[in-house]
Design a protein around this nucleic acid. Structure first.
Lengths: 175, 175, 175, 175
DNA sequence: GATGAATGAGGCTTCATTCAT
DNA sequence: AATGAATGAAGCCTCATTCAT
């Protein structure tokens, strides 16, 4: 529903109807609209982070590239299901100190940790300005926005492979 | 003001006050709130595209890398001024068929043309799925979002150089 | 209130205050201002038509004149209560295809049926152009408008009697 | 224009455009919207009253019936041209003390004088309650409203004749 | 604890009126 | 004297929030 109407477009009445309860009931559970949205966002955030962390742990033994690719597979699979919603979340991320930034920050942290490992393994270069981390973030976002540029969606595995390959080798021919 | 309140958060009263006119005056110039926002967005879009196209033309003779870097310098300089506003524009780009997608599409086109040149010059690989184009888009977005991840802003020239280098060589050590 | 301010002059705020509820409550019951007015008009229309039809049925056995007079008594009694409002309704009946014409049309129909009976009973002449029906309508309206010409109101029974007498015999002396 | 949009529906901008002047010019001529409408109404009123009075004078020598009929012919001819506008005027006549009542009052006076003559000539009965006058008023209005009841318009002469005949003889058969 | 009608602040828009040019 | 852009009060409507049942 949020995907269709926007985070702002969905009114309490519609949320209640969709949830199968009365409006008042929502206010018994959440202080106000803001709190409800925060809870919903937190829920979704946990969903993704749990999956992500599970994947990271599962492939800890594998090489950096493998771990990175699996991480993206997990991410893209999640986006296939919740991409429209996440786009809204990201869309609402204006204002630096916004509470809604938490999802991005959490994701950023995972990538940062992952990249540190890659650097320790001497698979990737140093990145003092976090350009690489920033790229991985944007790559995730980019997938959600492909249709905005008129491109067709990519299968999670293929997309993940492409991102990692590009990430490691760049677009240059000599590579 | 929009940067602080969001494209949606700013009311006509605030817009009018900020513009130094009365509410009614806004309606003498624009049919309604929607039209006003469209006009504002179109204005900003034209601003950027003009600068961008000028840069592209100016460095047409230079090599692909140079042209790409200059393009990003122009872009990042623009973002230094209007980054907070652009974040809103991009944030408002949910809903695939949204009129507000035009900015991204226009940018995408420029990158696509530029990349075609790079391929013709055999500087970069083929990119059937437009992964590279998507990356350049993401790189632009990434810069705008750096402070969201708690990172400090980068100087346009340095950022552009970093992006192009990463774009061509990737993050891998062997490069 | 409507009688004082006109159907158009009364704002939602005033309507709400008069109704003893908040503005929002009105919108819980009616889609918009238009719907509210329509409902109000329909209500009043039904009120009158019910009374009128009851009277018509009750005096079906009596002669035409009697039935006509009783019909007008009912009408004038109603107008004593709701005359000022009805004036508004009728006043708002510009624009031929207006929904608000329904009251007049309904009244017209009753008169028309009644007159047909009078013609069948050979009490009144034929009236191919519906001049008589139009007169009865005008008589009803005339009563509502008496104070506009600076005349005092008439008692329902007396007025009805006068109207019927005039209707049957005209103003001429020879009658 | 007023006929189409209603006395209330036409804004100063539209009035100005129709008049071929700028809005400001209207305010150089009239204190405000109300004054402009009053002036317009007064103009129309004078138009009609002049014609009416001319007709009354012209047929002063003729019999009462003739004079009455000619009076209605004049009236109906005027209504053929300005009926839609007059309907608006009458529609705006709510509130007893309204300035806009003047037209009706002026008309009422003419009818009243005319009827006094008929009574002096012993052509019509006494009418202490002004039922006859009220009828003549309503008859005029009725013609404008015929289409509201779904009836076709009548030619001025025929309509006038019908009204006068009915007025004198009533609807009864014995007459 | 659930309900949903009532509430009213706040948002968008219109339009009569003003006034500098 | 004419102009018409600027003005802002006032109107309609929405919707987050409350609270009696």
């Amino acid at each position: 529903m949020f995907a269709e109407l926007g985070l702002h477009g969905a009114g309490m009445a519609q949320i209640a109807e969709r949830a199968g309860v009365a409006v008042g009931t929502l206010y018994n559970r959440f202080k106000d609209r803001e709190a409800l949205l925060d809870a919903l966002l937190a829920q979704r955030r946990e969903d993704l982070l749990e999956k992500l962390d599970a994947s990271l742990v599962e492939h800890e033994g594998a090489g950096f590239s493998k771990q990175l690719e699996e991480c993206f597979v997990t991410l893209f699979e999640h986006l296939e299901l919740h991409g429209r919603f996440l786009r809204l979340v990201w869309a609402s991320e204006h204002g630096t100190e916004n509470k809604r930034t938490q999802m991005s920050r959490a994701l950023f942290e995972r990538f940062d940790v992952l990249l540190k490992r890659g650097q320790k393994d001497k698979v990737i270069r140093r990145d003092p300005e976090h350009v690489f981390t920033t790229f991985l973030m944007s790559a995730a976002r980019g997938v959600v926005l492909r249709d905005q540029y008129g491109l067709s969606a990519l299968a999670p595995r293929a997309a993940a492979h492409g991102v990692v390959e590009f990430f490691l080798k760049g677009a240059g021919r000599s590579a």
